[in-house]
Computed example of a mutant assay.
Amino acid sequence: MKLEIVLITGMSGSGKSVALHALEDAGYYCVDNLPPELLLNFVKLEQTQGAKKVAIAMDVRSATALPLVPQHLETLRKQGVHIKSLFLDSATDTLVRRYSETRRKHPLSRSERTDQQHALVEAIELERELLADLREKAHVLDTSFIRASQLQGYIKSLIAAPEAQLTLVFESFAFKRGIPVDADFVFDVRMLPNPHYEPDLRPLTGRDDAVAAFLRQSPDVAQMFNDIEKFLTHWLEPLARDHRSYVTVGIGCTGGQHRSVYLVEQLAATFSKRWVTLKRHRELDARGDLPPISGGATVF
């Protein structure tokens, strides 16, 4: 069995520690904040010890050496090491709120300015610039509006997906809570008939038969499905040839409960016949009693 490595990078405060805990629960040997200069030697050591599953987190504290990472990953792939690279991201205002809640200092924040929030925003934007190359080459997960339990579930589903050239992720969401920053394509379905205005359907979701039956009656819903299916069918093959590992398709409606959920379910069922396909329902998955990811120690 080849060595499997999951590399976790991303914005400070986006949930890397939560992701590592999920991987540890899944049987991975986890290392936090490994300096990029040590990556090749560390992997060699793990191979000599017979390791099979390793998870490594790197962040902006190793900023000067981060440009080494893509080259090192390519070297490891040529050696037969299977690598999944995940980048955790969050909206700037979410990161500012998390830092404000815990009063922790951003790793790039060295300013003594009295306007601490402005200094924090500057540090976050600098971090985005420094991590841009890693983000470009990884599968991005937006943690802006999700709970720790959701992130753990997403991580486990991604690592459980069979090795393939491309994994397709369909994600429903509510526009009123913002567009997922991890989406490669976004489709707006708010113009479709809304089950919310049907009293019997309002408490249900797009996964319920009654809502599905209501939406199937609409020619516009069928046309939207066909248009999205046609677009993706045309472009997924070129994306796979371009060596994309993941493609995330966001389907958004007003509340993220009915129309977007229904279309995600239908599209996932259709495309699973050709591609490795995962589903996420951001607003539905967020329901529950567990707290959202916050700026506490578990997210750094």
Rank of each mutant, 00 (worst) to 15 (best):
D93E: 15
V211N: 07
P238M: 03
Q49E: 13
S245T: 13
G50P: 03
A65P: 00
E24I: 00
L130K: 15
E74C: 00
I83Q: 02
H139S: 14
P219Y: 01
L290C: 01
N226L: 12
E171K: 14
T277A: 07
S17I: 10
G295D: 12
A63L: 03
K52D: 03
S144H: 09
V189Q: 05
H234A: 11
A119I: 03
G252P: 03
A286M: 10
F185C: 12
L23C: 09
V31H: 03
L158Y: 04
W235E: 04
L134A: 08
R103N: 13
F175N: 04
F225I: 09
K52N: 05
S62F: 07
D32S: 08
E283M: 10
D227N: 14
V121P: 01
A160P: 00
I8H: 04
Y154N: 00
S85F: 01
L239E: 01
K78M: 08
D93V: 11
T114A: 15
L232T: 02
G178V: 10
D227K: 14
A57L: 04
L284T: 08
E4A: 09
S90W: 01
V43A: 06
H243P: 00
E37M: 11
V249E: 06
R103G: 09
E46I: 00
P162T: 08
V181D: 13
L134P: 05
T114S: 14
L290P: 00
G252C: 12
P238D: 05
E112Q: 14
L134Y: 06
V261P: 05
A55Q: 10
L168N: 03
T254I: 07
S157M: 11
I56D: 05
E163I: 11
P238T: 03
P35R: 10
D59V: 05
S260D: 08
R104F: 04
I293C: 03
H139C: 14
L20D: 09
A269K: 12
D184Q: 07
K230F: 02
G50S: 06
K78Y: 00
M191W: 11
S14F: 09
D32F: 05
H243F: 11
I5R: 08
D184V: 03
Y99P: 03
F300Q: 12
Y262T: 02
P199F: 10
H281D: 05
K53W: 00
D285M: 13
R274P: 00
A148N: 06
R177C: 04
W275S: 02
V81K: 10
S109D: 15
A63D: 12
K230W: 02
E136F: 07
R110P: 00
E171G: 02
L290W: 03
L290V: 08
A269M: 08
S272N: 12
T143W: 12
L141W: 08
Y262A: 11
E136L: 13
E265R: 09
G296S: 15
K16S: 13
P107Q: 11
D59I: 06
G206E: 11
V54S: 04
A161H: 07
Q165V: 06
R61G: 03
W235D: 06
D59M: 05
L20M: 15
K105I: 15
A19T: 12
A269S: 15
P291S: 13
A269H: 07
S149Y: 01
K105M: 09
E125W: 02
L3Q: 08
Y99L: 08
L88K: 07
V221K: 02
A174R: 05
A91I: 01
F173H: 07
L86C: 01
L131K: 11
E4N: 14
R259C: 08
E129P: 00
P180N: 12
A240C: 02
T298S: 15
